[in-house]
Design a protein around this nucleic acid. Structure first.
Length: 376
RNA sequence: GGGUAGGUACCAGAGUGGCCAAAUGGGGCAGACUGUAAAUCUGCUGGUUUUCACCUUCGGUGGUUCGAAUCCAUCCUUACCCA
């Protein structure tokens, strides 16, 4: 896998690039829709390709390992074939579940013991079996197995956590080097920089992780409880530390504004459940601001859903109609909102790329952020 | 005409002397959501007030009582059954 930097913005650290995979090209900056258990919730793959134009989607190792399980994934010939998705896939390792399923897991130096959130059965992830599992899933980009450290952790915990992550990374890289892709196309892996909100830990984490970076590297453990400003500080801090020829993936982020600010600070790749989850819960992101479609104000607004939207749903349906679908609890509401939001997110990164190429990204970004964070 | 069971907040429906502005659902109105245990969760939902508190409210009217949604009388009314 290869990452090439293409353009740089003169007034910020924003850049465009190209990530070449065996399943196709990824133009960065990019947003990657999250498809945890083998589907981007509520959205047809057809629409993901043609309407939204997602260039890559995510899967999740923890969730897919529990269900459908490795036997089925192996028999299916990997996740691409199983879910019939021909474009690139990135899988998270389950490191986020180490963070979010804190009540039902135990961390040791060897790995992490989980209780399944589905049936309570006990399982263990180690860096080694995590590589094996992601080989079976067959992601184009595999994520290292880490501990996603909470944003409010103190320095001592963060340091201990980082040590663990670093030890796991070394073992992960070793196992990765010893194993081969199973399905005839290339796989790469991204190491993950942890270190919470502590500059000394972050820099140290980056320097360590960079030894294992091939095409790209990830910044993890952000947007997990720390103030947004701290998140921006950490990205700024890492920007000069990470070589320009590595794709930088800011994991789990975020709001459209977070993404633009991340791009301005040199980030190339983003993923987040926000467009789909918040969409299912009635929130629409647009260039003109945020709409809560359950609000009564939309009930007799028969204007098109989003005049500036790029999805067909934006011009095919009205605000009043979507409001009605949400109030009525119709699943179609969740589908339409997810489709709109993902199309918007992909439009955000597309516009960002255009403005970086034109060289006016920084000023455009400031104006855009102001607008998209307002409430309609 | 006779009998029985009812009439409680936007709706349904608990409550049957003080802890009742009144459970619980639904509906309504807002809010939250960041590598998805989320088509989920939270708050508010008689009036004034930031809270305390006070005022008005449980079909109508009139009583009993220190005190009534709750007991009594009467009227209105709904459903079902019998004729």
């Amino acid at each position: 896998m290869k990452f090439t930097k293409l353009h740089t913005d003169p007034n910020s650290s924003a850049r465009t690039g190209l990530l070449e995979t065996d399943h196709g090209l990824i133009h960065t900056p990019i947003f990657m829709p999250v498809g945890t258990v083998g589907s981007v919730k509520g959205v047809y793959h057809r629409d993901l390709c043609e309407d939204i134009n997602a260039e890559i989607i995510l899967g999740n190792t923890y969730h897919l390992y529990l269900r459908p399980g490795l036997d089925i994934l192996r028999k299916a010939g990997g996740l691409h074939k199983f879910e019939h998705w021909d474009r690139p896939i990135l899988t998270d390792s389950g490191g986020f579940q180490v963070f979010s399923l804190t009540q039902i897991r135990k961390i040791t130096e060897e790995g992490c013991t989980f209780q399944s959130h589905i049936d309570g059965s006990r399982h263990k992830f180690t860096p080694e079996n995590n590589v094996d599992t992601q080989r079976i899933i067959g992601a184009d980009i595999m994520m290292a197995f880490d501990e996603c450290c909470p944003g409010d952790a103190d320095h001592s915990y963060a340091e201990k956590s980082l040590k663990l992550t670093q030890g796991w990374l070394e073992r992960y890289a070793k196992r990765f080097a010893e194993t081969e892709p199973l399905y005839g196309y290339d796989q790469t892996f991204f190491p993950i920089i942890q270190g919470c909100v502590y500059p000394d830990l972050r820099v140290q984490a980056a320097e360590h992780a960079l030894q294992f970076a091939d095409a790209g590297i990830a910044i993890g453990g952000l947007a997990v409880g720390e103030p947004t400003e701290k998140m921006y500080e950490m990205i700024e801090l890492l920007n000069p530390v990470i070589p320009q020829d590595k794709a930088r993936y800011l994991m789990g982020v975020g709001t459209p504004a977070n993404i633009l600010e991340g791009i301005a600070r040199g980030v190339d790749m983003f993923d987040c459940v926000m467009p789909t989850r918040n969409g299912r819960n009635g929130m629409l992101f647009t260039w003109n601001g945020i709409m809560n479609m359950r609000n009564a104000k939309w009930k007799d607004d028969f204007s098109e859903l989003d005049p500036s939207g790029t999805s067909f749903v934006d011009h095919y349906y009205t605000k009043a109609y979507l409001h009605h679908l949400f109030v009525a609890g119709e699943m179609y509401a969740a589908m339409l909102a997810s489709e709109h939001n993902l199309a918007f997110y992909l439009d955000v990164v597309r516009q960002a790329r255009l403005h970086i190429e034109q060289g006016d990204f920084a000023s455009w970004k400031d104006a855009a952020v102001k607008k998209i964070t307002s409430r309609l």
